[in-house]
């Protein structure tokens, strides 16, 4: 984690768009009277979605809407690293997962590509201001490691080449489809199935197999018992 500060260059003001304002009031109304401060994270998140990053005027605006002290909202905004406190790339802000599974599967190569293609350091804008990047903790797609997240979409099973193509796609305005970037269905095995391949599993011939097996076992048991009884009878 890094020391988090507000950006030195801040816009002069902030206002929610009408749609977002309606949404914000509806959100605040979900909480009981006097507990409207509970809406602070949803409102900050919506402000960030509107402006792409969280500005100081936005923090002040949210504080005012919720009747909270500015410092209380600032505490929230600086606590959660998902809030971007400085401007992010206009086209894409790339969140590269750097946690162990992704690291083992090559996330460091993705990070070095970020450094060369986007900006040498995290949270800095690329020369054309289109991109920025940061390293984040686990985003929960470990089966498809390594992966990145851009906006709400995850791009998985990346290599340096496919990650480069991903950035190219965003640059051209034709981003690839989210999800695995190799021939794979979601998190199903790479290269197709390796187990459960027997065709009999699916033709109905196995229906009742277990019943048959149980019946057979019972029959053998009964036969053995009869044999034992027969052997004992003549002596008595």
């Amino acid at each position: 984690m890094s020391v988090r500060r507000l950006n030195p260059d801040q816009p002069s003001g902030f206002a929610f768009s009408q749609a977002n304002l309606d949404w914000a009031y509806a959100t605040i109304a979900k909480y009981p009277a006097g507990k409207q401060a509970s809406a602070v994270i949803p409102l900050l998140w919506r402000a960030q979605q509107q402006e792409a990053w969280l500005t100081k005027p936005a923090i002040e605006h949210v504080a005012g809407m919720l009747d909270m002290a500015y410092v209380r909202v600032l505490e929230v905004a600086t606590f959660y690293t998902q809030f971007q406190l400085s401007p992010v790339g206009k086209v894409a802000h790339v969140q590269v997962c750097g946690t162990t599974p992704c690291q083992l599967r090559g996330s460091e190569k993705l990070l070095s590509l970020c450094r060369t293609r986007i900006a040498p350091r995290a949270h800095e804008l690329s020369a054309d201001s289109k991109f920025s990047w940061e390293e984040v903790e686990c985003l929960g797609a470990c089966v498809n490691a390594p992966m990145v997240m851009i906006d709400k979409d995850t791009y998985e099973d990346l290599t340096e080449v496919s990650f480069g193509a991903l950035i190219d796609g965003f640059e051209r305005g034709t981003p690839p489809k989210p999800g695995p970037q190799i021939a794979r269905v979601l998190s199903a095995p790479v290269g197709g199935q390796t187990t459960l391949k027997d065709a009999k599993l699916y033709d109905g011939s196995n229906v009742g197999t277990w019943r048959t097996a149980f019946d057979e076992r019972e029959r053998v048991k009964a036969e053995k018992a009869a044999a034992v009884a027969a052997a004992a009878a003549p002596k008595a």
Binding site: M1, S2, V3, R4, A69, V71, R72, L74, T78, F79
Partner: peptide, 18 residues
Amino acid sequence: VEEMGAISRGEDMEIVGT
């Protein structure tokens, strides 16, 4: 007067006046 707070988290937590 709510003018002091603790920003950031973990090792980077800092006390600030606003």
